[in-house]
Design a protein around this nucleic acid. Structure first.
Lengths: 205, 205, 205, 205
DNA sequence: GATGAATGAGGGTTCATTCAT
DNA sequence: TATGAATGAACCCTCATTCAT
């Protein structure tokens, strides 16, 4: 479960990509120059640690996802009820809109038939035990809510994870969408989604 | 509601982009050459009708979305119940997996901060009355289900549209995902999502 | 035996490479920019006609070899005796030192394990009927000298070709070498080599 | 005549370049990394002993030439007649094809207008008394054959050296060439060249 | 209108060289 | 002395866009 130490240069590049991504850069048009300039290192240095631009971006995004998920996981430990947990995630989305929304965006990038998309998918397949990704987090939340005595079938579990993930995603889309499609108060949408999730999970208790 | 006539060259380009997209081409790495070659026209001709590559792709994708939505709309007229309609959409996803899933992908592309993404969003803002997009379709389905006598508040309407759209999207993601995360029978996931949607809409009747 | 028409751009590039080569450029450090600038065309244009830098150089050198050989062949028609022919080749080497010596250099490049070397070798294998290369020319000279009645075995023929080629090459090396290793009069070396060649061929008459 | 001691690191680099060269590496695309990796030393170390990549390669090749020539020289002491000596050289070419042929290749590299070519030429000009190069070896063989009583003019000597060298080179080219241009038995070509050389030298006795 | 040859800006990648350790 | 991480200049190649025909 120990994480491998990563070189400060690599860390700088991860950070640079995440920053640029969160500043709204189009991931498909990021240049190596931009990334290394932001990371404060030489362009050639990038290729001491990565073998292609796609690798740089894919690993950076994967790393960001894992990091955000871990952060969320730690913060969620403070909350007891399912409602509070889901609400916290959504409130975090609102507060750290950029960060969280971007993490969800990565899920979409993974669907791409692009080199980056393929490489991130690969990372998921090869993922280390200590890497927790969004779906793991959602599954964990569900298990915590239902407790030891409730044994979910694989099918129920997958369904619930996807159902909850879909609400979180749709909320990310909602927050990220343009103002015209937004309600006067985000809280309305948020509360509804939270309640709906609780109700659905509750049915398995 | 009359559609404007589009030049056969433009139609060929729309078709070319859609084909390439559905064949799995990475939309961010499509080249003008590929598109015009597939469309069977000269490269220079593209610039007689569009002012940039991004325009070509954005308009093509927008057009494809509208077309798919229209197709769906026509087919949905054959079904009466909400359940049957949602099921038909999902079955269509399974059958014409490529086509439908790609249509959903466009939604994600719209979130990009890329030139294409921005341009598609612009099309949505400027959209003609006769253009029907996915959200309109979902809204239409809801209205048909609840009938004239039920008046949804804007807030309820938006919530329901997003909630249903989220399930459709998550099903698209599910179908598009890798085998490892799939249940033995897609029907299980499909039926659950359909039922859940019906239940939720039903509560507003 | 008809030559295929070559595009003026390609011709310009062939010329550019030959010029640069003859001006003493190191063939292994030629850049595409240099070549296209000299050819008076855009850099990108090079890739409309060739698929890589190595192709450009290899084809240019091959073309130059064929051209020089043809030129020599035409000029040799004016001479009757073997001695006069070999002498003319060597005098041409002295006069058009750059051009001829470079043609011989290409033979050495062909021995390289470089991409260019490999590609030129390929051209020799694939060579068109109407392409005459140095060895063909030497063989032709020998046949003309010995006349129809003398039938050389394949082994004798190959030996003579190589023996003569070796003298021509060594003269090219000699001319290209530094002054310290040169006699006061090039004619001395030239005459000896010519005579030696005639004597050797004469033995087969 | 004492050789200067060379650092083991330098020796390792000489060996590395020679090995890579003989394994068929393109001398114009050798990298410092490859060389130092093969030599088993750090990349930076190369620059403690040489001032540029070209220096490394040029000195390595020069060193290899001197070494091969010395080896040949020692082995030739066992043979008495000119014929046996030339034959031994050619047989060595056949046996240690790679090594010997590469040594000849260096001659061609010297003709290049490349940095490496220029530097090797420079080494020849500056050459130490105890360095014996191929031309010296050939000259030595000729002198041994003709004995003390025959005094060759400078002009005769140079002619003979070049004439013999040209046959050796052409045999190297022949051996290195592709199978299609080879006789069924290399011995045929070898014997002819040997005899021709003996005849030519004999005329000066 | 339709074309495709020509272009050149731009970006990914390599690798010789340096320098702090 | 020996190292190898860091660097950035240089270069090949792509491809969106233009324009003469």
């Amino acid at each position: 479960m120990e994480k491998r130490e990563i070189s400060p240069k690599v860390a700088a590049m991860y950070r640079a990509v995440a920053e640029l991504f969160m500043e709204g850069a189009d991931i498909n048009n990021l240049t190596v120059s931009e990334i290394t300039a932001r990371a404060g290192i030489g362009k050639g240095t990038a290729y001491e640690y990565f073998s292609s631009k796609e690798d740089i971006i894919a690993e950076s995004l994967y790393s960001a996802m894992v990091e955000v998920t871990e952060l969320l996981d730690n913060r969620l430990a403070q909350k007891q009820s399912l409602y509070d947990k889901i609400e916290m995630i959504m409130l975090d989305m609102e507060k750290h809109k950029k960060e969280i929304v971007c993490a969800f965006k990565v899920l979409y990038i993974m669907m791409d038939n692009s080199a980056v998309g393929r490489k991130i998918r690969q990372h998921f397949y090869d993922k280390r035990d200590y890497d927790m990704v969004l779906f793991d987090l959602v599954e964990k939340i569900i298990r915590e809510e239902l407790g030891q005595q409730v044994q979910l079938s694989e099918e129920d579990s997958l369904y619930l994870v996807m159902s909850i993930a879909s609400r979180l995603m749709i909320y990310a889309l909602y927050l990220n969408g343009d103002e015209a499609c937004r309600l006067s108060e985000d809280s309305i949408m948020r509360e509804r989604l939270c309640m709906e999730i609780c109700k659905e999970v509750g049915e398995y208790r």
